[in-house]
Design a binder for these strands. Structure first.
Lengths: 273, 273
DNA sequence: GAGTGGTCTAGACCACCGG
DNA sequence: CGGTGGTCTAGACCACTCG
């Protein structure tokens, strides 16, 4: 029909329109690929490509051997990643670390979401290049090792994010709670403060990348889905030494990642959508 | 061969290995799809899928009708999006807005990158839902209008990011420089401060999404490429009113998006890779 | 066992690029 | 003009799910 627009794009747009106007409601199964192929008089490969487009936009999720479904519109969970564990401030929503450890659950409850984290899985591993760099591990150590604490985090029963924190092994020997596969009651920041490492600053970096196999599985995504957002935070102590690297992987759409600086209306802090 | 690993993944991994070990160097053209199909004894469709995988990982760029090329490893340009235009602080690298307007060019030069922005393209448009919400435009206005200032930004000769700033039309009438398709010499923040809107805080949000047609074209990407990162900043004035919405679209890989809070070693501020 | 999506083939035609 | 990647077809077989 139209010039230059591929057939699969047309089909994707038509399905998207049906989703937007409610002909196809969230949770509904799309017609099977065969049905769509017949209806549009195209081959199933063309339909597959159309559906793949929709998946990339996050509007559709495909479960192999079952079908493709209109994605539920997520009530996004707003993660406020602020500099509030650096000093007291007690405006609403402040005073928590934002997105890390137990603060995650507290923040979720404030937003009327039920959230929980899995018990941390603790591993001692060989440090790879990114960790060596971030944690400032001296190059002379031949095979430096690190402690990794990984948690799966859920909001309203759904996979929300994966968090991995890395520490130098020597730090974990001073601060042995890091080696236990148990939540640290008072929070990692407070615990390490008691062990002589006051978190005085941090550096945050963001990236987007295709999900790994593990992430696809955890988030329940199929191939050709959205990119995940990676947030990495390097925390520095009072000596200016990096002592923690935390990498959080977010499922996009399900999360809004937010920073607030300076003075904004309280309503902005309260906002949860 | 191996169980369950699709052929196209095998091919993608093999090519990726060749890239990593330097058999295929940055800038090199991959063998044509036909050649790869012959070599692996698969159909060209399978090869296409393999190359598409590599594109998603950012390792390969495809130029239609010319070939697929090993991506040049980008020297990432570090954008520090900090709260430094809120008050004076003169550690190295501070004192600029971070990623906005002229600050972008200054920051780039500090990192030994040559950067420039296109002349702003100014449009007056009907406000759409996201802008209405962010700028707090009253709902009673039947067809509210906004001013949009869009710039293309380049680093070292390559497309780096797209930035769109939105203002309420009434504000642009008070502050007419916003309507001119010219860089605002003293910077938008300073200019608006002179017009009675002191930027006292802001809210930042991040997202990842597939690129639009326009973005694909600007960044020189082909379909099935990486996701782009979207950063939206809502700036608030001394009355707690939102008066500016700035949306920046980053090409991932080419950028590192960074925040710094509290005390970190000066070396972290300096770091540019 | 019927139905689903995932993978794959062996072709085809096209638009665009370069010499 | 020949070569490239983009689109598309009309099949095929598989692994998996579900009734």
């Amino acid at each position: 029909m139209a010039d230059g627009i591929p057939r699969y794009t047309e089909i994707a747009l038509e399905l998207q329109a049906q989703i937007e106007q409610g002909t196809l409601a969230p949770g509904d199964r799309l017609p099977t690929e065969k049905e769509l192929a017949d209806r549009w008089v195209v081959s199933t490969n063309t339909v597959k490509k159309a559906i793949s487009e929709l998946r990339k936009g996050g509007r559709v999720e495909t479960i192999p051997q079952k079908g493709s479904f209109v994605a539920e519109p997520v009530q996004p969970f707003v993660i406020t990643l602020n500099h509030t564990d650096l000093g007291g401030d007690d405006a609403p929503g402040r005073g928590f670390g934002g997105g890390e450890g137990k603060a995650f659950v507290v923040e979720a409850e404030r937003q009327q979401h039920r959230a929980w984290s899995s018990v941390p899985e603790v591993r001692v591993e060989d440090a790879k290049e990114p960790e060596i760099k971030a944690l400032g591990i001296p190059r002379d150590q031949s095979q430096p090792q690190i402690v990794r604490r990984s948690q799966q985090r859920f909001v309203d029963g759904k996979a929300n994010s994966l968090q991995h924190s890395f520490f130098r092994l020597e730090l974990a020997i001073e601060a042995q709670a890091l080696l236990k596969s148990v939540d640290i009651e008072e929070g990692t920041v407070a615990y390490l403060q008691g062990r002589g490492h006051v978190q005085t600053g941090y550096e945050d970096e963001f990236n987007a990348r295709p999900p790994t196999e593990e992430e696809l599985k955890f988030f329940g995504l199929s191939k050709d889905s959205l990119a995940v957002i990676e947030h990495r935070r390097t925390a520095y102590d009072q000596n200016g030494e990096p002592f923690r690297l935390t990498i959080t992987i977010y499922k996009p759409g399900a999360n809004k990642i937010r920073f607030i600086a300076g003075e904004v209306p309280d309503e902005v802090w309260q906002r949860s959508s």
